[in-house]
Design a binder for these strands. Structure first.
Length: 734
DNA sequence: ATAGGGTTAG
């Protein structure tokens, strides 16, 4: 009676006072703990009972197994399964059901299924346990089949059946199936059950059918913390972050509702998406005070919140303080580093992860590949590709997308295409990434061909597709095609052009030499052109040496406020190229006065898995002396072939020879020569630069390919340059 | 019944 009424202390008192305890007395206590926790207390009692030589009966096992299932204590569960066999209870329906539940919850679905198939008589609870297990593992088809099979055998589903099925329906985003179930629940009156209603609410949320979630939530008379949490989760899932926070506030304003980790996890996700750091920090404080920080899910959510809000230092601090780290923690911090522009740190942390023996999963790998892509670390990328293949992840769509991107950014766009062709399922990101890859390499024709294939696929073509396509056209001089698809985009695909599309168009027209048309185009834009639009035009002015327009554009840029993307350098270079040194210098002075810093030019190369970086005039590398000697040697030979230093890029108004020298030490030249010195003579050289390649380097590298008879590839801030036999595939329009 | 990390363009 005391156990049933929840008076566990009184029950325990009576239990402890009885010196001779029957199995019934033990069962009562174990039952209490297995239903209310603490679960380990229930398991402890079971073992005490065994030690005292008391034989468990068919009631004991379901209770203790439920405790094991609650703790996901698979090892104990297996041992108790052994006891079940010893006492010959393995065909009891209740015991069997408890075993199925245990195995399913511990991830051993096959074992659960074996037990289930061996059962001669199955009641609705047994079916529900199997259905819940299958649903938990997200095997949607099997789950639905089980329900149908159950009905075929004349067993009618009860409300628990639907509570068990609905998560699988939501996860598989099977809205129609969910509606059918909803209808069935209404007919049988199950929808008045709070658990069923919450499951339905959640299912609709996962199917992005927020309206229904809201209706169900509004109709619910009694709401507990799980209902609130499901509603908040539904808003977050559907991208309505502000409303999610409002519901959270309503929940906090009311009483009788507890905070739970899932609620807080969803709220943190909303803060991250809204980049609402101040709210995130307030929550962090609350979490510390309320002891929620012991939950690794909560810590991971905080990590992600800080890194998505761009505060990598706080994310790293939190990460370092975490006592327990799982693969999610590592994935979150690795992606955080990459998203905040620190790909090297991402690789360092990935290494730490391997040392700590935390096994990387798919999300980790999808996070580490962009780090390799960013650094153009092909060898790291390849080794991760191997790992993915070994683990059987390589055919996953997101993994494939990340691989395509990595290979194309590492200069191997043909490898990207191989991955693309072998992928069993492609989504729009797959196509966009591949199109962008071709664009990056100046292979616009192939990008257009691929786009044609995409049009026959029936996939939802999105605004990113057109950004990639227009970019590809502009870097391959395909002006007509670009104009055509820009028009089609608005007319046929009903995509409202965003700033990015306008940037691509200005770039396309300007780069193609249609500077007036580009100006007119800007004039007709419905959006206020931003700095990047003017930057694209300025770039075109430099290519086509239109200093007058360049000056005007530059004024516009300066009026728009601070910028760090090198537009000052562009203008200054244009003046220098025209021999107007004073004005060139003046631009630099203005730049400095206004406090705009251009990030220093930096180039790097990966050799045997290590990355060697150089800045202009760098002498810190151990091989520096050798590099400079080699460069001097090349200079002599280059001059014999007709090379003239393009001193317009040297900036300072100094003596000719001095200028030549300063150009010679540009970071990309240093990295290339280092590569030549350290890679065998038949290997191509691949260098990456953080800014756009310098014009003098661009022509010097052509000569170097002739002298050394090597293919040299440079990835700069905007595209790839493939040099060989004295030419570059960009057609000198970079 | 509710819950954390991932891929494209700029």
């Amino acid at each position: 009676m005391y156990v049933t009424c929840g008076e566990v202390e009184l029950a325990r008192l009576i239990f402890d006072q009885n010196h001779v305890k029957s199995v019934f007395l033990w069962n009562s206590m174990i039952r209490y703990y297995s239903w209310n926790g603490p679960f380990d207390e229930g398991i402890d009692m079971y073992y005490k009972m065994i030690d005292l030589g008391i034989r468990p009966n068919k009631f004991t096992f379901p209770f203790v197994l439920k405790a094991c299932s609650g703790l996901k204590a698979l090892e104990e569960g297996r041992e108790i399964h052994g006891h079940v066999k010893e006492v010959g209870l393995d065909s009891d329906v209740y015991v069997c059901t408890a075993l199925i539940d245990l195995y399913a919850k511990c991830g051993c679905l096959t074992e659960a299924r074996e037990l289930f198939d061996k059962m001669t008589k199955r009641d609705v609870v047994a079916w529900n346990a199997m259905i819940a297990g299958s649903s938990l593992h997200g095997v949607y088809v099997d789950t639905i089949e089980l329900v149908l099979e159950m009905q075929g055998m004349g067993i009618s589903p009860n409300s628990s059946t639907f509570v068990a099925v609905l998560p699988a329906v939501g996860q598989a985003i099977k809205l129609n199936q969910g509606r059918i179930i909803h209808g069935y629940c209404v007919r049988r009156g199950f929808d008045n059950d709070g658990l069923v209603a919450t499951s339905l609410l959640d299912m609709y949320g996962k199917c992005e059918c927020l309206r229904y979630s809201c209706i169900i939530f509004g109709n619910m008379g009694v709401r507990n913390e799980i209902t609130w949490s499901a509603m908040i989760g539904a808003y977050v899932q559907c991208g309505h972050m502000g409303e999610a926070l409002m519901v959270f506030d309503r929940m906090c304003a009311g009483d009788n509702v507890n905070m739970t980790p899932p609620t807080l996890g969803s709220v943190l996700r909303a803060c991250a998406k809204l980049t609402d750091v101040s709210r995130g920090r307030r929550l962090h404080g609350y979490l510390i005070k309320s002891g929620f920080m012991l939950d690794i899910m909560i810590e991971n959510s905080l990590l992600a919140m800080y890194s998505k809000c761009g505060i990598l230092e706080d994310a790293i601090r939190l990460f370092d303080e975490m006592k327990l780290k799982d693969s999610v923690s590592y994935s979150a911090i690795i992606s955080g580093c990459v998203q905040n522009g620190n790909a090297e740190e991402a690789l360092v942390i990935y290494r730490e992860m391997l040392v700590s023996r935390v096994v990387p999963d798919m999300a980790t790998m999808v996070g580490i590949l962009p780090a390799c892509a960013h650094l153009a670390a092909l060898e790291h990328g390849r080794s991760n590709h191997c790992y993915l293949t070994i683990r059987g992840y390589a055919l996953d769509t997101s993994v494939g997308n990340a691989l395509i991107d990595m290979y194309s950014k590492c200069g191997q766009v043909d490898s990207s295409r191989k991955i693309f062709d072998r992928m069993p399922r492609r989504d729009i990101i797959t196509w966009n990434t591949m199109i962008a890859g071709y664009g990056l390499h100046g292979r616009g024709r192939e990008a257009l061909l691929l786009f044609n294939d995409l049009r026959n696929e029936g996939l939802g073509i999105d605004c990113v597709t057109f950004i990639s396509l227009l970019f590809a056209c502009s870097h391959s001089g395909l002006v007509c095609e670009g104009k055509h698809w820009f028009a089609e985009m608005t007319q046929e695909y009903n995509i409202v052009p965003r700033m990015e599309h306008y940037i691509c168009m200005v770039d396309l027209l300007g780069r193609g030499g249609f500077l007036n048309e580009a100006c007119n185009f800007i004039g007709k834009m419905p959006l206020k052109p931003d700095l990047r639009v003017w930057g694209a035009l300025l770039g075109a002015c430099r290519i086509h040496k239109n200093l007058k327009l360049g000056e005007e554009v530059s004024k516009k840029i300066q009026m728009l406020g601070p910028e760090g993307s090198g537009n000052f350098v562009l203008l200054s270079n244009m003046y220098s190229a025209a021999g107007r040194w004073n004005e060139a210098a003046n631009v630099r002075v203005v730049q400095m006065e206004k406090g705009f810093k251009k990030s220093p030019g930096c180039s790097w190369i990966e050799i045997c898995g290590s990355i060697h970086a150089f800045i202009g005039g760098d002498q810190s590398h151990p091989q520096s002396q050798l590099i400079y000697e080699k460069l001097e040697g090349y200079l002599v030979e280059m001059k014999k072939l007709g090379y003239q230093a393009d001193v317009g890029f040297a900036l300072q108004d100094v003596e000719q020879e001095e200028k030549e020298r300063s150009l010679l030490y540009h970071s990309e030249k240093l990295a290339i020569v280092f590569g030549i010195l350290n890679k065998s003579s038949n290997k191509p050289i691949f260098v990456t630069k953080n800014l756009r390649i310098c014009g003098d380097c661009h022509s010097a590298i052509k000569f170097i390919t002739t002298i050394t008879n090597r293919a040299i590839t440079v990835r700069d801030a905007s595209r790839f340059h493939h040099f060989s036999d004295g030419t570059c595939n960009c057609g000198d329009f970079w």
